[in-house]
Computed example of a mutant assay.
Amino acid sequence: MARCLLAALRQYNCGRDLICLASILSVSNTTTLLTKLPQRFKNSDGDFMTLLSIMNEILLIKQSVAARSFNLKRVCEAKSLTHIRHIIGQALRRYTSLEKSFDISNEYRQQAQIKSDKWELIAKALLIGYSNNVFVSKKDLQDRTHHFARYSDINDTAVLHLKSTLTRPISQAPVSLVVARDILYLSSIRLTAIISFLGVVKPDGINHNIERQIKLNEAEENCLKTNNGYSTAKSMFSNIIHMEFNNGLIHLNGLAGVVLTTELYLLQQSIIEYTFCLENNNPSNSTKYKNLQQNLDSVMKMPQIFNPMIWRWEAEKQVKMSINSNTATKTCEITIKGRDSQIQKVKEEFDSFLNWLQDCAVFRHPNSGENKELLF
């Protein structure tokens, strides 16, 4: 936080904002204080601006009355902040201490009084100290929804703290890019971290250098070449970052914000649509042909059995599927939209389903009232 505060004073003209944030963050260990906050304090830019709005409101009252007249208990009761009164009290004492320190500094006295209330400037100052704590939504990287990856180490996976103001319902898309103050691992095995004290950031605000690789299979490589996806990206970004396409790997090196924008663009350009039908390819006089045809006829009448698979692939790999079942023509058409590497895995899953289905003697309807199992 010291580096963030120094950047705010020297570069971004938001010294007072960072002093307020440093004061309350220094006495806050968890985001539990964000629970039960009145909605007017919550900010769409995240936890940092939410905390700043609390500090600004309390300080405005404190500085508008005589010192002896200020009663924190009554103020917190009036503002519905009683549950965090002890934290606010500690933060105010910390703020007073910092204010006195900067007041006797000839170099920073004036800068320490500059208030911007602009998240864009505050975020840039925070990124000076927390550049390694930038997390990108895995949904944007064609991966699992509501999981985040540390952009400097994509294998470092995290989820947002449930008490954060940036947490979204499962049915809603997550925020795309955040900076975090705290990263908590619940065990010595670093699987999934919990990140807290968060703020939404934009790619153009991330100015440190980074190197990334995008792995492609042959079909994805050809796709980016034939649809001019790579050449377009190169014309847009190669004057800012280094780009190299070789042996199924795209190497990106340069400013993290531009690298991220380039990567997201290339991933989007590699998405294709693939359609196929569930077909019975067994010899027409075989038992497997008879079983599979009979069971396929049943499947066509209840395409909803594929819903869990559809939801799973969209939630975990952003692959979209649609099932078009036509009992009149006895066809079941599957349309998949995603990267070819994922489409092939979905196709393998359907092929496995067909192999399994051809060995079924009886396929019961899920709502038949009978034991909901496949009998062999």
Rank of each mutant, 00 (worst) to 15 (best):
S235W: 09
E218P: 06
I240W: 08
L255P: 04
T287W: 07
E273L: 09
N246W: 03
I271F: 03
G257C: 08
I272R: 05
E273P: 03
H208Y: 09
N217G: 13
S231T: 15
S238V: 03
L260A: 08
E279I: 01
V259H: 03
N246D: 08
S298N: 10
Q294G: 04
N222H: 11
T232N: 05
N282H: 14
L224E: 05
Q269M: 11
L278C: 04
V259D: 02
L260P: 01
I206N: 03
L266R: 00
Y230I: 10
L267H: 08
H251G: 00
G229E: 04
E263V: 08
E211S: 15
G254M: 01
M243L: 11
L267N: 06
T275V: 13
T261P: 06
N247T: 09
N253G: 06
G205M: 15
L224P: 02
A219V: 15
S238A: 13
A233N: 06
H242R: 12
M309I: 13
Q269H: 07
I310R: 11
V299Q: 05
E211R: 15
N280E: 01
I241H: 11
N247K: 14
V258Q: 03
F245E: 07
N295T: 05
F276A: 07
L249E: 00
Q293L: 00
L278M: 09
P308L: 10
G248K: 07
I240H: 11
K288Y: 05
